[in-house]
Design a protein around this nucleic acid. Structure first.
Lengths: 339, 339
DNA sequence: TTGTAAGCGTTATCAG
DNA sequence: CTGATAACGCTTACAA
């Protein structure tokens, strides 16, 4: 029995002959080691938990951004010996079953947790972070003894978007920002402001609207911007979905993108190139975020001494039609003159 | 010890006083029952596996359709005492760790499996189906002693799309079908053909193209259709993403939707209303598919005698701009005359 | 109604 | 190098 265990775990102190005999038997019996029993004694589970907050209105699992992050996660985790457990926030009916995240984590002996789309101030999340279980957050600035995070260069990305529009001759640039409850929301706003300043453009507070990363909010914000006296000629949206909503609002008014209003999005989700017009956007390396979070988490699990890092991934401007950046810049010059 | 167990499991034979004392202690100690230990003795894990095939090119987790199904799954499973384990297809580096699905399932003592986006002829999938573990497939016609499936009324949906276009006056209707390797692909083709026949329309084989449910294939197929002598005036795409690709192809030629070509999609994914023009489509109840699969699976797990069912969910025509169905039907009459 | 004791399938610790 | 044996934390007879 013990020898079988040794063979299974690749321990060196087994004679080649015995080893082969054991493998033989394992194959013949179709033997699969039982994870539960092993977990019981080792304390390890080979399971990584994923917390992806499920609001009633906006299950974040549904936001294309997180889906792509999840793909990266899955891929990286999959090539290790771990599996992903989707931790549900929903309460169970049964009284003894763990309800909170932390309880579920302990229950399943989850070895590490990836946190996405969760509320930074949720006490449950706090509990998890403090628990000492290794955690990596994505797009969420959570820190702790065993908790780090991965995030795109949101400040730089927003600045990039502004600069691009400025280069195209735009001077009246507005922002449909993300929720300022979130770090990405705050950082994109910051990058937007800074670049405006750096370029010597006037900063109009009525040119800044706050959305929630989803289409409707982009549509509403855009409608408001269009009502402004001296409406903007260009808009940076802090998420592609909001950009899509904004385009809707523009088209609804009988205006055109990019001729009347230029749009730059953020994320470069799968459908960005499929929109009409195709969306100029700041590309986040979504899979990279997932992969990086996973890789770091695995290291955090393996090495208890490792200091949880804060990782920033670069972003990239992808020029398509919605900014008018692909056509010749005759119009740009005109706009620049108009100020 | 045993008494604690009894309290935890809500057994009746515990005095109210003792029961309360135990709960008290549990709360005080922040005690969380260990799932691994319990699993070891009960043989149950409270874990449902999810197989979502990850091709290199098209991780299906990335298809919006499956994402929404997953939301439904998660929600339903979450309100029971189960958690979802994402089973990775990727092989692990470690020799003893389970590689195939079935091994991973046994390894984790997964109680039931939801199958999505997998290849019907994959021997690994076959293994799982034959294993006797309760399974429910979504959009996949897998049957077995303990395996059933849930699927939309694809035949009816395709027919609905054709009829809608016919009602609008179209007579030259083409199909960008899904992969005929898949049941939905076959069924949508079938529905398309049948309805054409029923309406007494001629069936042109060059009006039927096969795609793979992703945008590029829609674009390619549409380009081919546009090259046809006597090109169609309307196209049914067997997936919204393909419809989006088709619209691209049309716009690229300087043609317009729906004026030159009307389009109807399939799925009603999140971004369908955000496309320009917004997409007329056949709505699948994606969350319903997930929820139904989950509910049925839970029953299958609870009752070993239960015959695994085949469930069909109704679909619904959602009229938006891309079919020209929202505008007045002057054009429709004209087209009808032209035949 | 409660406590005692025997497993569940592994790994880890010891002798041999 | 290999075979016993004791945990791991829980459930479940079985006794008390």
């Amino acid at each position: 029995m013990a020898t079988v265990s040794r063979v299974l775990n690749d321990y060196p102190d087994v004679s080649p002959v015995t080893r082969e005999r054991v493998w033989e038997a394992i194959r013949k019996e179709q033997f699969v080691p039982d994870r539960t029993a092993r977990s019981l004694v080792t304390g390890r589970s080979h399971v990584i938990g994923v917390i992806l907050e499920t609001g009633v209105g906006h299950p974040d699992l549904q936001h294309p951004f997180f889906q792509e992050v999840l793909v990266g996660l899955r891929h990286t985790v999959g090539s290790s010996a771990y599996d992903l457990l989707l931790l549900n926030a929903v309460e169970s009916g049964n009284a003894f079953d763990p309800q909170g995240y932390l309880r579920r984590i302990r229950h399943h002996r989850v070895e590490g947790v990836v946190l996405m789309g969760a509320d930074r101030h949720d006490p449950e999340i706090d509990e998890v972070v403090r628990s000492g279980v290794p955690c990596m957050a994505v797009d969420l600035d959570l820190r702790g003894g065993r908790t780090g995070y991965v995030m795109s260069d949101n400040v730089g990305g927003a600045a990039l978007a502004v600069r691009h529009l400025h280069d195209l001759g735009h001077r009246r640039i507005a922002l449909i920002g993300g929720s300022t409850d979130t770090k990405p929301g705050v950082d994109r706003l910051l990058g937007f402001r800074r670049e405006l300043e750096r370029l010597g453009l006037r900063h109009r507070t009525d040119y800044v609207r706050e959305g929630d990363f989803y289409p409707e909010s982009g549509q509403v914000a855009m409608a408001a911007l269009l009502d402004l006296p001296g409406r903007p000629t260009a808009v940076v949206a802090a998420a592609d979905l909001m950009a899509a909503g904004a385009i809707q609002a523009i088209v609804d008014r009988g205006l055109r993108v990019p001729d009347d209003i230029a749009i730059v999005g953020f994320d470069d989700i799968q459908i960005a190139p499929l929109l009409q017009p195709s969306l100029t956007t700041i590309r986040q390396d979504k899979r990279g975020l997932g992969a990086r979070a996973a890789r770091t988490l695995l290291r955090l699990i393996a090495d208890p001494e490792l200091e949880p890092p804060v990782i920033t991934l670069p972003v990239e401007l992808v020029v398509r039609e919605s900014s008018g950046g692909t056509v010749n810049s005759r119009a740009a010059e005109r706009r620049a003159k108009e100020g």
